[in-house]
Design a binder for these strands. Structure first.
Lengths: 200, 200
DNA sequence: TAAAATATAAACCGAATAGTCGGTTTATAA
DNA sequence: TTATAAACCGACTATTCGGTTTATATTTTA
């Protein structure tokens, strides 16, 4: 593919964006090739030319989007030096005004739902999570080296931190009426702080 | 509906069971009326006679199933007297050998995914969660009264406890290879214990 | 017991949709 | 200029599926 590199580099991002936007709107299971083609402003034939099959299309769009979100998290973390503050730096995820996050949460819930039955999607999810775990482990290790953290098992603690973020995010996103932004941030700060400093 | 009470009380549970089983297998979005009818051993016409429309059918099946799961949690909790042990009593949710839980998790992820776009489902989810919150608040209040817990805000703490359970469960269920039963139980015990005793 | 209400099955309808394909246009290379 | 491959279009096909209709059987009721 891609004899004409210029047109390719215009079309493909546009298709991926259209796909992700539609998924956010209707759900992975409910988008159609016609809809994607229409939003990406090309024909169904053209769409299929770039992504042969709906599965391939969705897979690419999801992977691309998650990669971007992760990059963002890493960049924000990298601007911080203190290990504990790094571990708490992901509260940008609790921002209702960020349209990318609205998309991201919906995508994430979709993926989880499908992953509960489909090994392939389970792998996508695991890979995504593993990236964050790696990031968290680095911060924890630095905190230990600096003498700030008391942690029995870095890996296990990183997974607990990550699980806390996810649990809080789920409630915060799906029931904002009963779970304020402040509750989310307070809970994460309290629990993550405990995980890295009060381990017996 | 259901002038004939006897036949009704046989058909309806059978239909609900078939629906839930099929949802667990294929996902809410992917079941068909024909499949449900076949598994419940009646015709599609018969099925529609009892539940006029797919939405009604799914709604009833989900509500019925969640009610049963909640009843189970309450019964287990009621057999325990110590407030902290009550708060930790829900680790029966981390049991891979229970077929009802396999069904339950898949259902739950489906609901979350749809709820992220559909107000009706968000309400279903909120109602379900609110039941657990009520249960947790009761335990926390008893612990405070007994002088065992130090908690700033009962409601907020109950929601944090619940979020911890959910976050841990998500990881434990979707990536069992990297999140052992022991990790799940240890994490919950550690975090919940902290939430009710070390609040500043 | 006859009429009415209910229960059930099977055939059917129409909309939606993933994927295919023949053919056209456009860009690059010879 | 010409040959070739990529890019693109949109009509067509086959299938799926929710819901309806029609017909028949069973149960309730008057």
């Amino acid at each position: 593919m891609g004899k004409n590199k210029i047109i390719y580099s215009i079309r493909v991002p546009r298709i991926l964006e259209a796909t992700v936007a539609l998924i956010a709107e209707k759900g992975i299971q409910n988008i159609t090739l016609d809809q994607v083609a229409q939003r990406a402003e090309l024909s169904k034939g053209g769409l299929v030319h770039y992504f042969p099959g709906k599965d391939k299309l969705i897979e690419s769009a999801v992977a691309d989007f998650f990669r971007k979100i992760f990059e963002r998290g890493r960049e924000i973390r990298d601007r911080i030096d203190n290990p504990l503050k790094q571990l708490l730096s992901y509260t940008w995820l609790y921002n209702k005004n960020d349209p990318d996050l609205l998309v991201g949460y919906r995508l994430f819930f979709d993926i989880m739902s499908i992953a509960s039955r489909d090994r392939r999607y389970r792998q996508v999810l695991q890979d995504f999570v593993e990236n964050w775990i790696t990031l968290l482990k680095a911060s924890i290790s630095r905190g230990i080296a600096a003498g700030d953290f008391q942690v029995r098992d870095v890996e296990e603690t990183a997974r607990s931190v990550s699980a806390v973020y996810q649990g809080v995010a789920s409630r915060w996103f799906l029931d904002p009426e009963n779970h304020s932004d402040e509750w989310a941030v307070r809970t994460v700060e309290s629990l993550v702080g405990f995980l890295v400093t009060n381990k017996l």
